[in-house]
Amino acid sequence: MSDLLEHIAPTRLVPEGHYGPEGATGVSARAANTSASPLAAATLVARKGATGRLIVACAAAGLPLADAPRSSGGAGLEAVGTGPGRWLVLAEGMSGPDLVARLAGMAQGLAAITDQSDAHLILDICGERARAALEKGVTVDLEPTVFRAGDAATTVVSHVGVTFWQRDGATYRFAVGRSFAPAFLRWLTVSAAEFGFALAGTGRG
């Protein structure tokens, strides 16, 4: 344990604030699904043998899906491949049941849809030194020529299972299991602190 976290209970989200040397902010992170701005989420799982048809149906409804660890956007939704025929779909400004209904309409019986709006902490991580901080736990190659915008990975970081994807050149979005979020933030905070770390959206502790 580092002094940085000594006074923060391991079961609590690391409070928002600046960690590390003053004046420097090499890494920033912001919780994207706060109570102020909820984010709906659902798993979309293709039924047996229906992956191809599901992709066609969703594309027709405006949501392109790749059967690969890639993220894609459309129809106001963001979909991330987490396994063959499996996606995590996020939507802003919508409730979980609304998202489930919306996806059910798109999928036309070709998929199982499960509300996961409360299952994750969604965290956007960016900054000049974001990769340098992330390589302290992410065991996937993040070199921009290898892990490009839109690429996604479901993996384990510091004993915590995560799905993350690169939204654009600068931001990695992480979905972390709700009960693992405190542990993940502790790891991220100590890893990013040397570069100056600004954390937002996790409350005042």
Partner: peptide
Amino acid sequence: GHHRGIDFKPARPTPTHE
């Protein structure tokens, strides 16, 4: 590495932990 003391392993709080 980071995994010593209370960070030895993740501590998962239940929704009613607080």
